[in-house]
């Protein structure tokens, strides 16, 4: 559990982060969203003490971070930044092994950990491992950066615009990887981003920041359903709120057993984890008013257009 208690950072009399109090549950992914200059990066950097708070405290699992030596603290916290910051004079494998080596792991342990991480992030250890950063593609470098951050099995991972430098196709892949990895490892993640869609897609909770203060801290569905301030609403984009909302919910929630449908729908069967937005998109594109969706417990279910449209408006 990460607690920020009345944390402020003042530069030259200006509060970049202004009296922020947040509690983040273990194993969750929290996105900190805001425009540039909102203080979101500074907030993140106060967690691993790259920035020292002017006032307030940060606690990790009940321990004050201020009393732990900064390097020691940082070795327990993964850190991923936009330009990945890989050491250009070290190979990918050596980059990934940085923190385990600092912690004095045995060579063999470091080596097997590096392999494990590379395989988890779909990087071929024998091909990518010996390469230098300038020989990697943007997506590969980003994944090496994530692997490096995860190398010493940190319980907390800080990510500052980790996908900012990637093109859209690779970004979607990288986001999916992060989602998968986070679920699998149960790591607590704080993700700083300016992209609300990214936050909605990935986060368990979203903290919206503006001018150093938290405007709203809530699960994505609540943010969409009930934006606390006009700024939050503006950040969401008024036009496609419903689609964003639908994109959060699994279509299976409104599926009926196949038998209850008047006449079976033909066409492809959507995967079980498809969202309502995906189901609606499929209907529009194929000109149907109902689609089938896979059901692990039995026959495919049916999702109707009316059900989706009803679900798209929070009560």
């Amino acid at each position: 559990m990460i607690e920020l208690r009345s944390v402020s950072k003042v530069y030259d009399g200006v509060a970049v982060v202004d009296d922020v109090t947040l509690t983040l549950e273990r194993g969750t992914l929290t996105a900190v969203v805001g425009t540039s200059g909102s203080g979101k990066s500074t907030l993140l950097r106060m967690v691993n003490r790259l920035v020292e708070p002017t006032s307030g405290q940060v606690l990790i699992d009940g321990a004050y971070t201020a009393v732990i030596a900064a390097p020691e603290l940082r070795r327990k916290i993964g850190y991923v930044i936009q330009d990945h910051g890989l050491f250009p004079h070290w190979t990918a494998a050596r980059n990934i092994g940085t923190v385990p080596v600092l912690l004095g792991w045995r060579r063999a342990d470091v080596r097997s950990r590096v392999r494990e991480l590379m395989e988890m992030l779909q990087l071929d250890p024998d091909v990518i491992g010996p390469r230098f950063p300038h020989e990697l593609s943007g997506g590969q470098a980003q994944r090496v950066g994530v692997a490096r951050a995860l190398a010493a099995r940190p319980e907390l991972l800080l990510m500052d615009e980790p996908f900012g430098a990637l093109d859209p196709v690779i970004r979607a892949q990288a986001q999916a990887d992060l989602h998968r990895v986070q679920r699998r490892l149960g790591t607590t993640v704080i993700l700083v981003t300016h992209d609300m869609a990214e936050a909605i897609r990935l986060a368990d909770r979203i903290a919206v920041m503006r001018a150093g203060r938290i405007e709203q801290f809530a699960p994505p569905a609540d943010i969409i359903a009930k934006p606390a301030t006009p700024f939050v609403a503006e950040l969401l984009g008024e036009g496609d709120r419903a689609f964003r909302y639908l994109s959060l919910k699994p279509a299976a929630d409104v599926a009926r057993p196949d038998g209850a449908a008047e006449g079976a729908a033909d066409g492809p069967v959507l995967p079980g984890h498809a969202t309502m937005a995906e189901a609606l998109s499929e209907m529009i594109w194929t000109g149907r008013d109902r689609v089938r969706i896979a059901n692990p417990d039995g026959d495919p279910g049916i999702v109707t257009r009316e059900a989706l449209i009803r679900a798209g408006r929070p009560e």
């Binding site: 900064a70 930044i81 910051g85 600092l102």
Partner: peptide, 15 residues
Amino acid sequence: VPRSVTEAADGMGLT
């Protein structure tokens, strides 16, 4: 030395 590299080094806990 690129800023992102020094930032990463600090962030990973190099003294």
